[in-house]
Each structure stands twice: as structure tokens, then as C-alpha cells.
Amino acid sequence: MLVTDASDLRARVDKALGAFLAAQRDRLTTIDPALADVSAALEDFVLGGGKRLRPAFAYWGYRGAGGADSDQIVAAVSALELVQASALIHDDLMDRSDTRRGEPSVHRRFERLHTSAGWRGGSAAFGDSAAVLLGDLALVWSDEMLQSSGAGVAEITRARPIFDEMRTEVTVGQYLDVLTQATADTSVERAGKVARFKSAKYTVERPLLLGASLAGAGEDVFAAYTAFGLPLGEAFQFRDDVLGVFGDPAQTGKPAGDDLREGKRTYLVAAAFAGLGEKEQAELDEGLGNQGLDDAGVRRLRDLIRDSGALAATEKRIDELMTASLAALDAAPLDNEARQVLHRLADAATRRTV
């Protein structure tokens, strides 16, 4: 478990999410008892795991900008977990991932529900449809949770443009990821842009800016948070890319080689193409996106990536990004407590194994 703050923030975020989702459960089951399956799936997904990094960055961005603690602010930043849930549910569907955090992904959960109930039609199509709708519902609820958090009208009004921009960025970033796989673009430039918009900005920079906007911070704080948060978010995504290929499934909760079978054109993979000869490039290109890739095939692609120098280059890039990020944090006009917690969050985000 990550230590994300100096107090009990994680427990408070979980409490706020639990209360919100319980109210939504009552709302859905009043419409129709069959919707209990929907509310249960979202409660299990949102409350069943996750690092709570985004609410932590937003909360400490708020505190670092001079904001005072309140349960209402905790509830407001907790809405970020529903944006994350939406992104993950849709990502698992698009990647055809069977598991998430060691449990069935949402589309697989509803596929199994259809099969066990003996309903008509295709179980896979039912699962896919359910995942689209549940991902959409989580995104709708993120807006509702922010709006109903109890934070002041002025605070919410300041925060909304950041919140809206973040949700647009993560959505179009996901499209660029899908496009990059379809076009087999192997450029480092494209991989970096996908990483920035699909994950980096909405993992660190936008949550920090959301916290700053809730606190009514000045432009100097916004500039400092961007200088700290954007390189850190990219380092976070590059660490995720490394774990997607070389991580331990017992810790990541996903089968070994899933990113390779899905054909993800990450910074790590782009760096491998840049470092390989034509024969090895062709072999890597043929293996990427092969859903039938066996364990031996996964090991071979790992060897190609490692031997190309891409793993070492990615680790070096992570270190460079972290150096820039922490230098910006040290220079930021923040109180010392927030600076210390943000430093620990940065370390946890990039040195993790899950």
C-alpha cells in the first residue's frame, strides 16, 4: 500500500466515495432492482483498490496553495477517482483485458453474469455494452460528485474549467493511443504525446491544478505545479509502461505480457524500435498485438526490448524527468508540509512495482 500523505487522507477519500456510491445505489435500485448489479460492480471497482494518487495530488495541491482542510474538499477531490474508474473500465474493454487488480474486468464480469443467468444473445456483446455504459456512468458521476461535494460555489466555479479540460484530455489521449496502435506509429515523439495526454496530465498536473484552483491560488503556484507535475506524470506513465512489460503479475494484477499482446506503442517500445536492426524490428513488430503470443513469445519480445537498450533508456528518462520535477518542487512557493508530502507522492508514483 502506498503512503500517500501525512494523515488519514486515503481513508477519508474511501469514506467519501463509499457514501456517494451508497446514495447512488439507493437511487438506481429505486429505478429498477436489476440495477443492483450495476451499482455493485461500480462499488467493487472503485472501492476495491487503487492508489488514490489523483485525490492525494489534488488535496495536497490545495493545501500547498494555502487551502484549509475540510471534508467538503476531500469529497471534491475524490471525484477524480470516478474519472479514473471510467478511464480504466473503457481501457480494459478496448484492450480486451481479462483482469484488473487481479479481479475480472468489468466487461468480463457482465459477460459471466449473462452466461450464468442463461440470458439470450451473446454474452460477450452484453459484457461489452455493460462496460461502455458503466464507464460512461462513472464519468457522469464524477461531475455529480464534484458538484455535490459541499465545497463553496466560488471554489467549484474556479475548479470546473480544470476538471473539464482534464476529462477532455484523457479522452482524446486514449483515442491517440488507439490510433497509434492502428497506424503502428513507432516514433518516440508520438509515444511521448500519448503518454502525456492519456495519463501524465490527468494523473499529476491536472489534479494539482484542480487543488490550486479550489484554493484560489495565484499564477506563480499554477506555473510551479505544471513544472513539477507534468514531468512527474510522464515519469509515472513510463514506469507504468515498464511494469506492463517487465512487471510481476502477482503484483500488477494483470497477466504477464498483456501490453505486448495488446500492441501498445509506448515510449519503451518506441525506444526499442529506435535501437534495433531491421530484422529485429520486424520480429518485434510481428509480435506486438499478437493476441495468441505465448510465454515464450513474451520472453522473446522482452529480450528484444532489453537488448535494444530501450529499458535502460526508459529508466534514464524517468530519472531525468524526476530530477526536473523535484527541482521545480523545491523551488515552488509552498508551505513545507505540503512540499514534503508531494515529494513522497512523487517517489511513490515512480518507484512503485504495481
Score class of each variant (00 low, 15 high):
residue 195 A to K: 01
residue 236 F to H: 09
residue 267 Y to Q: 13
residue 282 A to D: 12
residue 190 R to V: 11
residue 268 L to C: 09
residue 173 G to Y: 03
residue 181 Q to D: 02
residue 271 A to K: 14
residue 297 G to M: 11
residue 179 L to Y: 13
residue 267 Y to P: 03
residue 253 G to Q: 05
residue 226 T to A: 15
residue 283 E to H: 09
residue 202 Y to F: 11
residue 237 Q to D: 04
residue 194 V to L: 00
residue 241 D to F: 07
residue 194 V to R: 02
residue 206 R to I: 03
residue 202 Y to S: 07
residue 226 T to R: 15
residue 311 L to A: 04
residue 239 R to H: 05
residue 193 K to I: 07
residue 229 G to D: 10
residue 295 D to F: 09
residue 235 A to S: 10
residue 200 A to T: 05
residue 259 D to I: 10
residue 178 V to W: 06
residue 203 T to N: 04
residue 311 L to Y: 13
residue 204 V to H: 03
residue 249 P to T: 08
residue 227 A to G: 09
residue 195 A to C: 03
residue 176 L to N: 04
residue 219 E to P: 12
residue 210 L to D: 04
residue 306 R to V: 02
residue 202 Y to I: 09
residue 285 D to N: 13
residue 209 L to R: 14
residue 209 L to A: 11
residue 220 D to E: 15
residue 220 D to W: 12
residue 238 F to E: 10
residue 215 A to L: 06
residue 234 E to R: 15
residue 185 D to L: 05
residue 295 D to W: 00
residue 230 L to Q: 15
residue 271 A to C: 13
residue 228 F to M: 04
residue 233 G to M: 00
residue 264 K to A: 05
residue 223 A to H: 07
residue 208 L to H: 04
residue 288 L to I: 10
residue 265 R to C: 04
residue 279 K to I: 01
residue 218 G to A: 00
residue 199 S to D: 10
residue 292 G to R: 14
residue 190 R to M: 13
residue 182 A to Y: 02
residue 195 A to N: 07
residue 263 G to T: 06
residue 288 L to D: 11
residue 275 G to W: 04
residue 176 L to G: 02
residue 293 L to V: 04
residue 295 D to S: 15
residue 281 Q to M: 11
residue 296 A to P: 02
residue 195 A to M: 00
residue 208 L to K: 04
residue 295 D to K: 14
residue 179 L to K: 14
residue 197 F to T: 05
residue 290 N to H: 13
residue 196 R to F: 12
residue 202 Y to L: 06
residue 276 L to K: 08
residue 262 E to Q: 07
residue 216 G to M: 08
residue 296 A to E: 14
residue 275 G to M: 05
residue 301 L to G: 05
residue 263 G to W: 00
residue 211 G to R: 12
residue 271 A to S: 13
residue 237 Q to F: 06
residue 291 Q to C: 01
residue 261 R to E: 06
residue 292 G to M: 09
residue 313 A to Y: 00
residue 206 R to M: 06
residue 303 D to V: 15
residue 203 T to M: 05
residue 244 G to R: 08
residue 247 G to D: 05
residue 228 F to E: 03
residue 254 K to P: 03
residue 262 E to S: 00
residue 203 T to S: 14
residue 215 A to I: 08
residue 208 L to A: 02
residue 287 G to T: 00
residue 290 N to D: 15
residue 232 L to W: 08
residue 230 L to I: 03
residue 198 K to Y: 11
residue 185 D to T: 06
residue 276 L to R: 01
residue 246 F to P: 11
residue 234 E to Y: 04
residue 287 G to Q: 03
residue 256 A to T: 12
residue 231 P to G: 10
residue 232 L to E: 06
residue 227 A to N: 02
residue 307 D to W: 06
residue 236 F to N: 09
residue 200 A to C: 03
residue 272 A to P: 08
residue 250 A to L: 13
residue 203 T to A: 07
residue 174 Q to K: 00
residue 226 T to H: 14
residue 243 L to H: 05
residue 191 A to L: 01
residue 252 T to D: 00
residue 313 A to W: 00
residue 206 R to V: 04
residue 179 L to Q: 13
residue 244 G to N: 08
residue 243 L to R: 08
